[in-house]
Design a protein around this nucleic acid. Structure first.
Lengths: 185, 185
DNA sequence: TATTGTTATACTCTATAACTATA
DNA sequence: TATAGTTATAGAGTATAACAATA
C-alpha cells in the first residue's frame, strides 16, 4: 500500500486513512473472535460481557451496556443467554432495587478462562506482522485511546469540534443526499 | 481502567482485551465520521469509497468491495449514490467487458479533499490522548497490521490456528447454545 | 460453464417506543 | 415524575439467491 503511490506529489490516500486501518483490523478481529466463540453462549458478545462483568465491582446493566457499546435492550437478551447456562446471575441492588447487578458465577469464570487462552493466541496471530515489542506498544496506545474515549463521552465533544471546524456548506459538492438511495422500492 | 485491578493477583481482564479496545476506538471513529459525513453522498462509506477509488489504478467493483470490507451487492447501491452527483463514473473495462472500472471525477476529488481536512481534525481529536509522536506510531503499526490482514486472506489462516489450538470440546461450559435466544417470539 | 455486476427478497440486527417496578 | 429493566415492533442494514451480460 505504502509502496504504490500513484504519483510522487500525490501520495496514496489510504496511507493516513485511520478509518480504513481501523475497519480492516476491527473486522479481522471480529471474524477471528467469531471462529473461536460461535458456540459460546451469546457469541463473542457473550464472552465480552463476561469480561466486563468480571472487571471491577458488579455494575448494573446500563453501565455494562455503555461499556460494551451496545444498546441496553439487546443487553437484556445477551444476559438471558448467559444466565441460561448459569454463567451469570442477576441480583437486585440492595441500595436501589431498580438496578440489577450482574455477577459472574464460578462456571462463568471457568468458561471465560477456557476461551481466553485460545482467543489470546488468535489475537497474537492477528498482530503477527508485528514484533512482540511492537505488539505491546500497539496494545498500550490503543488502551489509552480507548480509555480516553470511554471516559469523556465523545459525542458532545466531537460535536463542538465539528461545528468549529466544518467549512462553508459545501457548494456543489455533497448537496442534500442524506444517505443511501434505494432506487425503485 | 488500568488503575483499578480488583485484586493484586487478578489483574483487570480488560487490560489485555484487544477486542474491547478495538471496539471502543472503532465505534468512536464511526460516530465521529458520521458527524462529519452524514450529508455526504453514501455517508461515511461513500467517502471511503472515494478514498479507495482514488488510490492506485482503477479497479473493478469486486476489488473495491473487498478492500472496503463490504458486500458487492451493497457496493452497487453505494456507487449509485456517488454516480448521482457525478463523483464517480462507471466505465467498462476494455480488457474484460464484464468488469466496471470506477473512476473518480474532478468533482469527486474536490468533494473528497474538502471533507478530508475536517475528518483529519476529528481523527486527531479522537487520538487526543496521545502525543503527536505516539499518534504517528499508532498509525504506523495499525497500517502494517491492516495491510498484513488484507494481504493474506486471514480466514483460511485463522481456521488452521483455531483447530490447532482449540482445547477439548468444553465439557459443561459453553455447550450447544449456538447464538442468541429470542424467547417467546 | 464461470464470473461480474445488478436486482429482488429474506433475514438479522438494532433501535424506538410502550410497559412494569421501583424511587 | 424520573429511572432501570423488559418486551414488542418497526426500521435499517446485510446477505442470499436469481438474473443478465460477458468471457
Amino acid at each position: 500500500m505504502t509502496h504504490a503511490p500513484d504519483q510522487p506529489d500525490r501520495p496514496d490516500p489510504r496511507d493516513d486513512d485511520l478509518g480504513w486501518m481501523l475497519g480492516v483490523v476491527f473486522r479481522g478481529y471480529v471474524r477471528a473472535a467469531e471462529h473461536v466463540l460461535t458456540d459460546f453462549p451469546g457469541g463473542p458478545r457473550g464472552y465480552h460481557l463476561l469480561t466486563a462483568a468480571s472487571s471491577g465491582p458488579p455494575r448494573n446493566q446500563g453501565a455494562l451496556a455503555e461499556e460494551l457499546g451496545i444498546d441496553r435492550t439487546v443487553l437484556t437478551y445477551l444476559i438471558d443467554d448467559l444466565e441460561g447456562p448459569g454463567f451469570v446471575v442477576r441480583r437486585a441492588d440492595p441500595a436501589d432495587r431498580r438496578n440489577r447487578l450482574v455477577d459472574v458465577t464460578a462456571a462463568g469464570r471457568a468458561a471465560w478462562e477456557q476461551r481466553r487462552s485460545t482467543l489470546r493466541q488468535v489475537e497474537a496471530h492477528l498482530l503477527g506482522a508485528l514484533t512482540s515489542t511492537e505488539s505491546a506498544t500497539l496494545r498500550g496506545l490503543l488502551q489509552r485511546v480507548a480509555c480516553s474515549i470511554q471516559a469523556a463521552d465523545p459525542l458532545r465533544d466531537l460535536c463542538s469540534v465539528v461545528t468549529q471546524v466544518r467549512p462553508e456548506p459545501p457548494g456543489g459538492a455533497g448537496r442534500d443526499a442524506p444517505s443511501r438511495t434505494r432506487r425503485r422500492s
